[in-house]
Structure formats: structure tokens, C-alpha cells
Design a protein around this nucleic acid. Structure first.
Lengths: 161, 161
DNA sequence: GTAAATATTGCGACTAATTCCAACTGCAAC
DNA sequence: GTTGCAGTTGGAATTAGTCGCAATATTTAC
């Protein structure tokens, strides 16, 4: 019998190479649980919640515990391998740093998320440094607001009603 | 016998006039619970957490329920009377809008909070509107980072160790 | 006054996330 | 092999916050 983590699909793939290698290189163990968690993170299009990771891992190995997922995410974040982003109050998602870190514009009406290039926040970071001697950590930012479409709609509503 | 909410100190004061008046003006009831909650919000120097509000209210009236605090805060926020700010992931605080809305620079080392004038974020808001047609809601923003002092310290540590 | 309608509250169940601790794993030293 | 130990895990308990619902309070209509 093969245990789930011994199956082909959860052996580290090309894309998971970075996270796995970095973990082992720094003296951490690549346990089956961590393999499955890393795999889930790296096979997501963009970002993924802790809950979703847990769901995926549990499907392969039902005994895994949520706290293991959170601990692994905490470790990966500490090592600078994944980014934690707050997408609106209370909704936290993760994504691997190798895919580049950017920000998110989240529409509070339709929930749509638009990625924002890091450079847009550079002037703000500069200004905070200059005027407040504060080194802002702007790697994980979710900015709430209204997209053009929803703003249009809400203006129509006000005008008509 | 007088119930706690009938005591002088929780009758709406000068500063709580706005919130109380606005609530009643819009057809909401000023219940003893709401009086105590509003009172806590308005007698704080700057901002206050839901938990702290609950602690204060419970001290006067032990039967009050947490959910009442959260519901009242939700209502006040909906009416635009208080602002909800995320001070670092997972730590949410509230403050009355009448005291002016500003932003916060939160040092992740020492935890110090520096208030930031709204105008500093105006260029960013402008740029998001221009380049992304996105109307950013930047009223409640807590920016994490390192203050000058802690940055100095961390650089020394790296240099010596 | 009472009755009906509505607003608000308390309670208990639930979720996401964290923390503590005892048990387990892998590895090096003997 | 087995001992010791740091790293890691599972499970149970805890925390902040949310939700549905029945009970209560207030307002309005009579």
C-alpha cells in the first residue's frame, strides 16, 4: 500500500522546487504534511486561503490538523517564501512570493479583485520615509473601494431613487 | 434602586451628543446598552477595540452580550458615525468620525502608532483613480512597517551579529 | 388601558484562527 | 540496536467574531 503522500502527484514538482528546496536548505524537514501544503500553495493560480489549503490536504490525508496548516504558513511567511494578504477585513489569503508580489484592489460591491503593480505604491513609500521616517511594509496590501462599474451603478441608483 | 444605566455618568454627555442625536434622529432607539457603548467609544482618547468596549460595558451592566456590541458597532459604521481600522492583521479598532479620520503608521517592532494625515494618501488615491478607474476607500488604513528607531536598532543588530 | 407590529437583545451554536501540550519522527551519538 | 534530542504533529482548549432565533422592550393603533 502507498500512503497518499507517496503518490506521484504530491511529489514536489518543477514549480514547488523553490519552496521545498528553501525549506530543506534552511534545515527544516519536508514532511508529508508540508509537501501537501506547499503543493496546494504552488498549484493555485494566484492566492489561496488557509481553509482552502486545509480542504485540499485533508482530501488526500484526512488525519492532518488545521494547526499544521497554519504553522506551516507561518513558517513559510517567516522565511519570506509566501505573502499573507488581507483581502478585506477578516479574509486572509496567501500566495508564493516567487510569483512576484503585488497588491490588490478589491471592489466592496462586486468583490472583484484587480492586481496592482508594486510601482504604484512606490511614491507613497517614499513619502512616508521622507516625512515620517517610517519604513512602510507595503508587500501585502489589499485596498478596498469601488470599481468603475459599481461606482457607475451606485451613482445611477442615487440619481433615480 | 437605580439600574446602572440610569446613573448620571452614562447619560449622554456633550461629546456623545453627536452619535446619540444622530441615532435617534434616524429613527433608532437609544437603549441603555447603546448608551453605554457609545459612551465608551466617545470617552476614548483615540481608538478602542470591540473587546475593550465590551469590558467597559460589562462592568456597568453584566448581562450585556458581546453580539450587542458588535451589532451596535456595525450600525454606527453603516451610518458613517464611527470608523473601523485594521491595526495589523486581526486587530480591529474603532473611533468616532467626529474626531477626524486619519491613518496610522504601526511599527511592527515596538507597536508604536503614529497618526498620519489624510493628505499623504491623496496622491495614491488620485493615481488609482486615474490609472485603474478604482475609487479607493482609504478612510481606514493601518500601515505596518518599522519606525526610525527600530529600524536603526535592527540594522545595528545585523551589523554586530 | 390592550393588542399587534417592529426594533432590539440575549443566548447558544458556529467559524476561523491561535495556543498549549503530550506524543511522534528522524537523525546523530553511542 | 537504543538513547537522546530537536523538530514536528495532532488534538483539545481558547479567542474574536458572526449568525439565527426566541424572548423582551418599545411604539403604534385601537
Amino acid at each position: 500500500m502507498r500512503f497518499p503522500w507517496q503518490q506521484k502527484q504530491i511529489v514536489p514538482t518543477e514549480t514547488s522546487h523553490n519552496l521545498t528546496e528553501e525549506l530543506t536548505r534552511q534545515g527544516y524537514r519536508m514532511t508529508p504534511q508540508r509537501m501537501m501544503i506547499v503543493d496546494a500553495i504552488e498549484h493555485t493560480e494566484n492566492h489561496i486561503s488557509a481553509e482552502d489549503i486545509f480542504r485540499q490536504v485533508v482530501a488526500k490525508y484526512p488525519n492532518v490538523n488545521v494547526s499544521t496548516v497554519y504553522r506551516t504558513l507561518e513558517l513559510l511567511e517567516k522565511l519570506g517564501l509566501v505573502t499573507k494578504t488581507e483581502m478585506g477585513v477578516g479574509h486572509i489569503v496567501y500566495h508564493p512570493l516567487e510569483k512576484g508580489h503585488h497588491h490588490h484592489l478589491i471592489c466592496r460591491e462586486c468583490g472583484n479583485v484587480v492586481d496592482l503593480d508594486e510601482s504604484v505604491l512606490a511614491p507613497l513609500k517614499e513619502s512616508l520615509q521622507q516625512n515620517y521616517q517610517f519604513t512602510a511594509d507595503l508587500r501585502h496590501l489589499g485596498i478596498m473601494g469601488l470599481c468603475a462599474e459599481c461606482k457607475q451603478k451606485s451613482q445611477n441608483k442615487t440619481a433615480n431613487g
